[in-house]
Design a protein around this nucleic acid. Structure first.
Lengths: 339, 339
DNA sequence: TCAATTTTCTTAAACGTTTACGCACTGTAT
DNA sequence: ATACAGTGCGTAAACGTTTAAGAAAATTGA
């Protein structure tokens, strides 16, 4: 196997010019004659030449490769619907602009830190999502001098793209309120920036609506954790004065809640209403469709990629900012009108 | 920004040895004294040295990087539950062995073919899944002299890891049969190796069971396509002699079918039974849980990674074979016992 | 004690690019 | 004729590694 790769040297020989001329011809420098360029390119094509990225990277200090850090505590990784969709969009956008995507390995057995790994591979930029931002290694990575954008987490003085959780919860709660619900419980995710935003938005909106929220209506579960939401839901249902509607951390967790409700012999939404978050495709296919906030994952990934590539290619003129992407209420049938 | 990276040259200077000695010390060659090694490593550590993968790759022709081709016609990409799970497992296994994962870009606007891209990046190996294997570019890639393993598609004389679709359908059909069903329809996926295996297994098993299968019970839809399965299901339900049970291409598509059933005012499984394929997590959380064949995605990804890395590191002694991974019947409540 | 070995380190070339600089032309203006 | 700028190409060094080959020093064996 393995015929040898053809290099610039071979082309130079075939064209009877120097290697430098070949390089400049292929990179369209303007100190090479047009006919020479044409000839060299023709021969290069014929000989089946492609550049060697390692050599190019070595010389130019640019890899055209973006590192992706993409883990969470629960090790959902790629199977996390929301982040998979964001990453997919990110990937497409980056690829269109000539960048490749490589994962920053999460296994530490090569005893490289995230930052060491990123430097080793020479990533031009980094995107971080779906992660424990308290991890000191993550902080080290963000502090490192590689261009970085974070998704759904704002880090001091770095570019971040976040979904509008404040507006999301406000819209959702207002919608439920307008459907006549006054006893609304909120099972929220574990402590994180996202959770905090949603929670404070929940309280603020409740206040604006003149809604009183008893403490026992606010419970902590976790994202994508059906078991926990199942348990919290049971607790809510056993309250002396149970809620008429329950909001969940996300659609997935919502299914756990629905199971608890069914187990109690109750129906959704006739006996009790529920709503999720994220608007994952599957939740819109079920009966009843889950009322939720559809996240604009397409936009999130696209903006993240564009901002990062801007930062890589034009560091001076790129605005360091936090971009907020709005979601949209998906009105399913899981919230009953009881007004 | 950007303090300079420390290179072997810097370490050599600090230790007053040659660059070659540093290289050999760090790579644990045996012609370097133990104390010298220790000293060099200590200094390297202190100076915050990490190797430069580009330089290493250039010299050794090894990148420790694996290319992933991961597209399908419907452009589901990463959001495809089944393949996302396989890839996730693949990724973890590869990372444990010191390999990184880079996507082979699907956007052709850089006018590189898959193979050109793979050579450009110098991938040590390639894994291909979730794809149109008829694409001539894919064939070119597989024919190229880069170690490759394919998932769920067998290509002549290459390593392949496939899930056992024959056994899967046999188990599923037999299970349904044993529940008393005799009028069983099969809405299958679009034409592909996987589909063909499943279809012939369906017919073979039916024959063994003495089951007659009218032609109008076999319909073509597509994987992960809820709309098509919805339509086919309506067609089945309007038959003069409708089936009592319908098998679907996958769990996702199955939801489309269930919607059609509900729309007709029928219940699952009381009025009509359904079964999916893949055993995606969400399908086991719903009410009723979807009876399905749980694919062993963990094993698929792991085996694919191990075989590929074997092929990369020990090409001579690696057996070129097709590994088949069995799934497992998940018995939900979507198939009624009517015996 | 001295040649033969072994151990430890260095020299130098190479991998495939890019790029600053220099040199030889050609053409134009003095 | 001389000077001058512009055009088109080559020279050579550099990027950070690895590794074959060799050399010096230390060890061994008789």
């Amino acid at each position: 196997m393995g015929r040898k790769m053809v290099s610039m040297k071979d082309i130079a020989a075939a064209c009877e010019v120097s290697v430098a001329t070949v390089s400049k011809a292929l990179n369209d420098h303007d100190d090479i004659g047009q006919e020479t360029k044409d000839h060299i390119r023709l021969i290069a094509e014929k000989m089946g030449y492609f550049p060697n990225s390692a050599a190019k990277a070595l010389k130019t200090n640019r890899t055209n490769n973006i590192g992706v850090l993409f883990v969470d505590g629960a090790r959902n990784g790629l199977t996390h619907d929301y982040f998979a969709r964001v990453l997919d969009s990110f990937k497409r956008t980056a690829e269109e602009k000539g960048f490749d995507i490589t994962f920053i390995s999460e296994s530490k057995n090569n005893n490289m830190s995230y930052l060491a790994h990123a430097r080793y591979r020479g990533f031009d930029g980094i995107v971080i999502a779906c992660i424990d931002f308290m991890d000191p290694e993550v902080e080290e990575l963000i502090r490192g001098n590689i261009p970085v954008v974070t998704i759904d987490h704002i880090f001091n003085n770095r570019i971040a793209v976040t979904s509008d959780n404040v507006k999301g919860i406000r819209d959702l709660l207002t919608y439920v309120y307008n459907k006549g619900h006054r006893k609304i419980a909120y099972i929220h995710g574990a402590d994180s920036a996202v959770t905090q935003n949603r929670l404070s938005s929940f309280y603020k909106t409740a206040e604006e609506l003149g809604l009183s929220v008893p403490d026992e209506y606010i419970l902590e579960a976790a994202y994508r954790n059906t078991e926990l939401s199942y348990k919290r839901t049971l607790e809510l249902l056993e309250l002396p004065d149970p809620p008429t509607c329950i909001l969940y951390p996300d659609d997935f967790a919502c299914f756990g809640g629905i199971n608890a409700i069914h187990e109690k012999g109750l129906r959704v939404p006739e006996d009790i209403s529920v709503a999720g978050y994220d608007g994952i495709p599957i939740a819109q296919l079920l009966n009843p469709q889950i009322t939720s906030i559809s996240q604009n994952t397409e936009m999130l990934g696209k903006i993240a990629a564009n901002k990062l590539i801007d930062l890589i290619t034009r560091p001076k003129t790129t605005l360091i900012e936090q971009v907020v992407v709005e979601g949209q209420l998906f009105e399913g049938q899981s919230v009953a009108d009881i007004s």
